[in-house]
Amino acid sequence: MTLSAERVSRAAGGRLILDGVDLSPRPGAMTGLLGPNGSGKSTLLRLLAGVLAPASGVVTLDGRPLDRIGRRDVARRIAVVEQQADTQVELTVLDVVRLGRIPHRRAWAPASAVDEEAVAEAMARTGLTGQADRLWHTLSGGERQRVQIARALAQRPRELLLDEPTNHLDIQHQLDVLALVAALPTTSVVALHDLNLAAMYCDHLVVLSEGRVVASGGPAEVLTADLVAEVYGVRAEVTGTGPGGRPHVRFLGTLTSGPTGG
């Protein structure tokens, strides 16, 4: 068993952000969370991480309600990569990645050989080995994102939650990051805007619209021209010409505009 959200709802400012959402990521698989801005993706990820509590419904981990599990135990299992992270403290890349080991260490205890091995492995997998001494505030947005992913991997989590991990990354690094996440032996939930990247790398897709799940299933099942029109207000052509026969979405224009051409 792994993470599961059952009929979760959450409101803020008098507005219902999530309305009775169910989500049960497949163990060891990569689930893509899709939907336009304001659909509730980030809020759902925070509920899964235990950062927010649902107004109704329950989030469970291995069948146990998340709010009945100690924060350290949750942190040892679940790693989170937010859209943006910043600090005024002068930290190096190595310092930031080492933060991922905090849930596994007792207070004031020095890093163990296992800690250092996990950190080195995470930096190698994200291509940061040669940048250990660089200062955080000198990094570009894309470089910071890679460091945050390395920090999450250093936790050696069984569940990994990522909120738009490809933001600020060029195309090569978008592909590298998602290929890395897809190859991990973790249960991953990844919020994405790019439908074609989701189709390429995700095993399962869940689409949110106005706080509700409107579609879930495999990429070929979920990504249809009708769904793109309904959820995004965009005319599209969906073919099975992507890598491995996965669907590819070609956008033709908004529903209120003419063809874009090309």
Rank of each mutant, 00 (worst) to 15 (best):
R7N: 14
R7V: 05
V8K: 02
S9M: 11
A12M: 13
L16Q: 15
V21Q: 09
L23R: 02
S24F: 11
S24Y: 10
P25V: 01
P27F: 05
T31W: 07
G38H: 02
K41T: 01
S42E: 03
S42F: 00
L44C: 05
V51L: 14
V58N: 09
V58R: 13
V59I: 11
L61Y: 08
G63S: 10
R64S: 12
R68K: 14
R68H: 12
R72K: 15
D73V: 13
A79G: 08
V80W: 01
Q84T: 14
D86N: 14
T92W: 09
V93W: 02
V96A: 02
V97Q: 00
P103G: 05
H104P: 08
R106K: 14
A111K: 10
A111T: 12
V114M: 11
E117D: 15
E117I: 14
E117Q: 15
A118E: 08
A118Q: 09
E121N: 14
E121L: 15
A124I: 13
A124Q: 15
G127L: 11
Q131G: 12
D133W: 13
R134G: 05
H137Q: 13
L139Q: 05
S140I: 04
G141Q: 07
G142T: 09
E143T: 12
V147L: 06
Q148A: 11
Q148H: 11
A150G: 03
P157Q: 05
L160M: 05
L160D: 03
L161T: 00
D163V: 04
D170F: 03
L178M: 03
A179M: 04
A182V: 02
A183M: 07
L184D: 02
T186E: 08
T187H: 05
T187M: 04
S188G: 09
V189E: 02
A191Y: 00
N196W: 01
L197F: 01
A198V: 00
A198M: 01
H204S: 12
L205N: 08
V207D: 06
G218L: 13
E221N: 07
V222S: 04
T224D: 00
A225Y: 01
D226Q: 11
L227M: 10
V228S: 03
E230M: 12
A236W: 00
E237Q: 15
V238R: 00
G242R: 05
G245A: 09
R250P: 11
F251G: 05
G253V: 01
G253A: 07
G253M: 06
T254E: 12
T254C: 12
L255S: 12
T256A: 15
G258S: 14
G261W: 00
G262W: 12
